[in-house]
């Protein structure tokens, strides 16, 4: 009986959970941060626009690092002519589930904070940067 109650609670929690959809687009989370990858981030600062009181108006959109593929979902970026690097960024966005595969356990099994030859970069608790 107790097991049934727990199971039903979990199912109800999942069904009734507040679905944060990115302007009607489906929820997809390839990078496992708990947020939809399709949330619009116009200035590409990794903070979704809806969580910022003011999004920086950029004088130039030619840089790849400040080009957000999700911004193409917004009205602001309609009819934008993309540069070569931005087109690549768009390809990268589409293939992000492949680039972020955890096949070699570098993130989950890494020995940690290290700048040695065995790991190459800094990883803290499974978060590599």
């Amino acid at each position: 009986m107790r097991f049934k109650i727990i199971a039903m609670s979990i199912i109800l929690f999942l069904i009734c959970s507040c679905a944060i959809q990115a302007e009607g687009r489906h929820f997809i989370d390839f990078d496992g941060d708990g947020f939809s990858d399709n949330i619009i981030d116009f200035d590409n600062n990794s903070i979704p626009d809806e969580f910022q009181s003011k999004v920086k108006e950029l004088k130039s959109h030619t840089r790849t690092f400040t080009f957000s593929p999700t911004a193409l979902f917004s009205d602001k970026s309609k009819d934008v002519k993309l540069t070569v690097s931005q087109k690549f960024s768009l390809h990268q966005f589409k293939a992000r589930q492949l680039a972020k595969c955890r096949s070699n356990f570098d993130s989950d099994f890494n020995s940690g904070l290290s700048a040695g030859a065995s790991s190459g970069g800094g990883c803290v608790g499974g978060v590599c940067f």
Partner: peptide, 15 residues
């Protein structure tokens, strides 16, 4: 691997 979303905003990733 497989990545899918269920019941709105629940994402499952298996590899």
């Amino acid at each position: 691997g497989l990545n899918l979303s269920l019941f709105g905003s629940n994402a499952i990733d298996f590899e």
